[in-house]
Design a protein around this nucleic acid. Structure first.
Lengths: 208, 208
DNA sequence: AGATTGAATATACATTATGTATATCTAATT
DNA sequence: AATTAGATATACATAATGTATATTCAATCT
């Protein structure tokens, strides 16, 4: 006799609520903790009012939980505004807006810093985060293609893309923030640096 | 009766040799390992042909060993050339040279990447590395002071210093390298970006 | 109403690390 | 010959991830 399986609205809702509570507890723990080293599933489970095994049930592993937290932060981090930014008529203005959006994203929730720390100890999680960052790279590439003069070399374009990609990364944001800047001040510095990175693409004489 | 203590040349030499062997084994393990997570004192001790307790005897802790490895790499990483670079007549040429020296340093031994990963899980080790990086910041600050026009605002100077500090950091080097560049190509990109960062310091009209 | 299902729990265990404590061994030195 | 310091042997405490098994309990199906 085949087992009769069913879907339960009330059950699913309860499960989803548990998931949310655990993710919330995890990001809070990341935010308030001193270091990713102290981030344990035990702590998270207790903070969420569930058992450690429930965390495993829901997320499979520590890595699974971290990925879920990252995605949750991304969902509420304002990255959806990128779509609008990319369709702006002026690609330079779009780039400025993109920098704004990412500075806001990196600064919104300090848990993202801890998640970047987690990349150091978990190569597969690092890969997952890098994949999510590829969207940013594609965005930059698209803008550079619109900004670059026709005679700009592929190498010059690649240089600009990679440099701007690095300038808009979390580590750069963190480094500039650590030097005692507000989010808006960091944003301004990064924007200026990105403008400078565009220079070689528009000069009519690209002789080095 | 007070214990009669003594220094032993042969003993000291043997100890120093042990220390060196452990540090060598540790940096090799860092270089060859996939992740800092797999870096354990057990592994290092076995690779060095000593006991784990000997490592504790010599370095006190995992952190102590990591710091010793970092210092060893720094000692042989060519950073001593910085002294000459800083005394160059042309501060812009000095900055170019500085970028060269650091690109060489970051790329010389892949263990430095793993040591930067270790910063994520050990706040005190991170602090120790940051202190060692402060030398780079001071170098940049000195050069900027020589390059900046008199009318350049303190804010513009600080912007340039912090940006160049970020551009010459390991994370930036790693990001540009990951995009498929040789050490020299990364060096060229960083140098160009640093030149651009100097622009606002020399324009006679620094109106924002 | 009674059987069944699935999420959450309880309990236990294996494994891997760091770090501490104590006693012993051994070669260098007095 | 006694002593000293570095290295070792052995044991233990603690914390963390991950797996396994059985159980509780409310929601759902027949």
């Amino acid at each position: 006799m085949p087992p009769r399986s069913y879907v339960s609205p009330a059950r699913s809702a309860a499960t989803a609520e548990t998931r949310e509570r655990v993710i919330e507890a995890a990001s809070r723990t990341l935010r308030e903790g001193e270091s990713i080293a102290r981030f344990s599933l035990d702590t998270v489970a207790k903070a969420a009012g569930v058992t450690r095994l429930t965390v495993y049930n829901q997320f499979g592993s520590r890595r699974g939980l971290l990925e879920a937290v990252f995605d949750e932060i991304a969902r509420h981090g304002g990255l959806h505004q990128l779509a609008d930014a990319m369709t702006m008529a002026d690609p330079r203005a779009a780039l400025d807006r993109m920098v704004e959006i990412f500075c806001a994203f990196w600064s919104r929730d300090s848990a993202v810093g801890r998640l970047h720390d987690a990349m150091a100890t978990d190569p597969e999680f690092a890969e997952a985060v890098r994949e999510r960052n590829e969207r940013r790279r594609r965005g930059v590439t698209g803008l550079i293609d619109r900004i670059a003069a026709k005679q700009a070399s592929p190498q010059a374009r690649k240089d600009a893309v990679d440099l701007i990609f690095a300038l808009t990364s979390y580590p750069t944001f963190a480094s500039l923030s650590a030097a005692g800047r507000s989010r808006d001040e960091v944003c301004r510095v990064v924007q200026t640096a990105c403008h400078a990175a565009l220079q070689p693409l528009t000069l009519s004489n690209p002789s080095s």
